[in-house]
Design a protein around this nucleic acid. Structure first.
Lengths: 208, 208, 208, 208
DNA sequence: AATGAATGAGATTTCATTCAT
DNA sequence: CATGAATGAAATCTCATTCAT
């Protein structure tokens, strides 16, 4: 039985809970789900081991809570991923890319994406939640912009139906690269974003 | 200490060893490193648990051997990633993409990539091996083609220095998507590849 | 990493730890290091197997802790192995012998000596600790007494430099004998000690 | 079932068997019974693991065979531990000591004594065999000499009944020391023997 | 609410022994 | 006779979870 479900937490308890979540994210990000020990979370958060169990019904629930609550702010931002009313499709797409690279790919969130890739197969609920809540929504927003450009004749329609993913793909590479290979060959996110945008806008531009 | 290092294996032993590696790849791919039990590998391979330890110095060594030896065939293919002598840069790039999508992204190898992304942080050696042996080599081959196109005036030079990664990025997305999200929203690799190529070639083409 | 190192134990934990040490000494003494199972220690101590690992980083560390902490009281006694101020060298030596036979050779400590002899080669740290902490100190105390006797003309100086060991040697025999052969041919420690003292004092006495 | 019992070995087999015994003694001496792996014996001897089992019914039997057959030459020497017919008791005792230190305490045999001390409690048969075959016989020979000296008025009778052991004790110390502590503080066996003899002969000499 | 000592199921690992070749 | 690959019982060790304080 867990308080989370039964009743409101006192402000103090709420603070404790947040601290545990934050600590858990750090630990999971660093070593992955399986390698993370509840002891580590306990130590990292400053709470005793028993306290972790006071707020979460076990390791798996803690993991799911971490991902869920770490994604919420992202979700809110993605929601507000609006575009300038009087801007060209290119400007709108550029704005969305810049939003993605500057906000979504921040350290913490990159780690979440890696966790989803790494642990997804073992946690279908996590995968589904991430897919529906974040991924689909983001892709839909991007697609809306591209289709807007196509309709007004600014963009050509690329081959096939998967052009949104093909357009966004390199952002995934950037995210994975920074998480996994950055210590071998560092990637300048800023510069990479510019190249990516440059390539995509040229790729979508209509040919005379 | 392990026989692997000290001396040649008899053909029979070599066969056994290969069977264990193959079984282990299946198990690791399915459930990840931490979730894989030596018992599973033993059962999957038909060998007794002790036999696994006869050929590998423990779970970690087995994992590293699996990745190492599963990458070798990829490496050989990447090595042979040649191009037509009298073809345009666009044709060469198209050939390389098609090679990548049809060969490198096969089920088994996709799983390896996911394992590297997922477990890389916990296994620096694996990461380094994968980075140097596969990734760097593949990127170098692609870059050679793009630079060839730029030199002969067929391609424009994209902004920044990371254009190779920006060009290849979506292939990573495809790989990750198929491994993680394909059961929610399936991705037709063939069609995706065509869109990706279409977009990239247009993105690189010089503007009149 | 282990709590033992990082912080003070609560009194309750300290008590538990002591119980495990005591149980482990009994088990190791009875069957030797290699034959002792952590399960045995667990059962003997009344603590669960996991509890043993809570306090010690594995079997080897447990073993070393057992010897270390079992020797400490001996050390303290050896430290206090003082002599009567106005007594003859013979009286002092007799007192030291009697101390050794009655205190140091008690059941428990005899077992420790056997453990050191048996496992020493496999545990250099144990050997070194025992050597420096117990053996060297005891030999130094004995030597001081003999040299005192030589200086005041009460003892003759025996040949060579190893007379301290030669004087003490039979005590080792007694210890080993009682541990290994006592069930075949029992040794009366008390009586043996008297013979040993008698022989040594006569051996050291100056000839007219 | 084992050939040893059933029939004579061919000379070639006999040679093989001896090689295994010799290798096993080296291995057991180095790491003790429990730590010794049949694989080690196999490697050390040059014979395959299966071959070891061809000659011995398992690890325990091999251990017992090693001790038994390593002691036989000692036994023969102890048997011949005669004394000069027309010598004094002191000369006879001195001869016996010198015999002991120069012959019995050789490297190999010292190791056997340590093995008996270390593993004795776990191998009652070994202990008994060693006790009856070696120890008792040696003690009896020494005692005969001392009693001879007492009878002819050359030695005084020491207190108690354990004087033989008290007389021989330091030899045990020397043996143990060399095996266990020699790398910390080396013991010159030759010199130690002289001190031991000097001390004992003085200890036994009648007082005027 | 909070603690952290205690637990034990379940994992990894070892190695004496067997047996097909 | 000899081999060494294969086995699996038995050991060590891990860590999520519980619960008395």
């Amino acid at each position: 039985m867990n308080l989370t479900i039964n009743r409101e937490l006192t402000p103090r308890a709420e603070k404790r809970r947040k601290e545990v979540i934050a600590a858990a994210l750090r630990v999971f990000s660093k070593v992955g789900y399986a390698n993370a020990k509840i002891d580590d979370v306990s130590e990292e958060s400053g709470a005793a081991k028993g306290t972790v169990y006071l707020y979460f019904d076990g390791k798996e629930e803690l993991f799911k809570a971490v991902l869920r609550e770490t994604m919420l702010p992202v979700l809110e931002e993605v929601e507000g991923m609006v575009f300038e009313p009087n801007a060209s499709a290119a400007d709108r797409l550029r704005a969305q890319f810049e939003f993605f690279y500057s906000r979504v790919m921040k350290e913490e969130r990159r780690q979440v994406m890696r966790l989803v890739i790494a642990e997804g197969p073992n946690f279908p609920e996590v995968k589904e939640f991430y897919f529906n809540t974040i991924l689909l929504r983001a892709l839909t927003a991007i697609r809306a912009t591209i289709d807007f450009g196509i309709e007004r004749g600014e963009f050509r329609k690329p081959e096939g139906e998967f052009y949104t993913k093909a357009v966004m793909g390199s952002a995934i590479l950037a995210s994975v690269w920074k998480t996994v290979f950055d210590d071998f060959l560092p990637l300048d996110t800023e510069a990479f974003a510019q190249t990516h945008i440059d390539l995509v806008l040229n790729g979508l531009r209509v040919r005379e």
